[in-house]
Design a protein around this nucleic acid. Structure first.
Lengths: 147, 147
DNA sequence: TGCGGTCGGTTTGATTAACCAACTCACTAC
DNA sequence: GTAGTGAGTTGGTTAATCAAACCGACCGCA
């Protein structure tokens, strides 16, 4: 990866922007559950392990940032479920690259959860340049900070 | 955040494993700085905005998990710097997908930091299946949980 | 010999957030 | 009418966070 000039204040950076929204212990696990089509508060709480009050604040924050949407599925009693918005669905590359990293560099052995790709093989995420299609290798990126 | 709340992670999942290591507000920003070759405590503190004491605990945790290494670069006075290990370098796909998401779904407008790929175009990260090479599209993944 | 500055932290003390258990409210089903 | 469920709230406690000050070992300069 590229090198950057030493600035004096925290960087103006879209990685930081992304982390402001999903850079805590629970948010990405909530998004994971919604990818698994677990849309209900209680299911999400159970599958993530997040305390219920924290989950409440995280869900609100994610709704506020347009990552998920809260929809009523029952009038009486009032019951709600959560769904990914397009912005939320766009997080799949982040989850898939994290999954691979967690598998290869945190946990050894077999991954307890496998995704199969429509090509017939297990899905393992790789990253490529959307312009030329080449898989990313070391030292191929140059920083172009804009003034 | 440092301590994972007593094994409350009901889903056995390598995404959660990854987040146990880098799923807090500062860790990925630290890794970002190391990608930018900012290796010193003071530089990392300045460029991330992390409080110095928090940075101390995060750096120790990342060393502990093998993401970064602490190396002495001066005997007297004793001075240290941090470097990415191969595991740390393997986080680039996570940072690049987060960067794209932050740009497209959190901040509008131009990305303040651009990477240029060796192909001559701006680098925008895409995700593909490492088996067949196809770019990921919706509804191509099937869950294969193993019991 | 003294003065200012750097580096890599640690300490302090106040604020904030996370956590957990128990509780509510509005129902449904028995 | 008792039990259970879903989606949260509430209260009390612990733990993490933060900004700012402090520290020790140097280094450069005069």
């Amino acid at each position: 990866m590229p090198t950057a000039p030493a600035d004096k204040n925290p960087r103006d950076c879209t990685i930081a922007d992304a982390l402001d929204v999903v850079g805590d212990r629970w948010s990405l696990l909530v998004v994971r559950e919604l990818f698994y089509a677990q849309r209900r508060f209680t299911e999400i709480a159970r599958n993530t392990g997040a305390p219920r009050d924290i989950l409440t604040t995280r869900l609100r924050k994610l709704v506020e940032h347009g990552v998920i949407a809260r929809e009523q599925y029952s009038e009486r009693p009032a019951r709600y479920e959560y769904r990914l918005t397009p912005a939320g669905r766009a997080l799949s590359p982040v989850l898939l690259t994290l999954k691979r990293w967690g598998h290869e560099h945190v946990r050894g052995g077999a991954d307890p959860v496998r995704f199969d790709h429509s090509c017939g093989h297990e899905f393992v995420a790789g990253v490529h340049c959307t312009a030329c299609g080449d898989t990313l290798a070391n030292d191929q990126l140059t920083l172009e900070s804009k003034e």
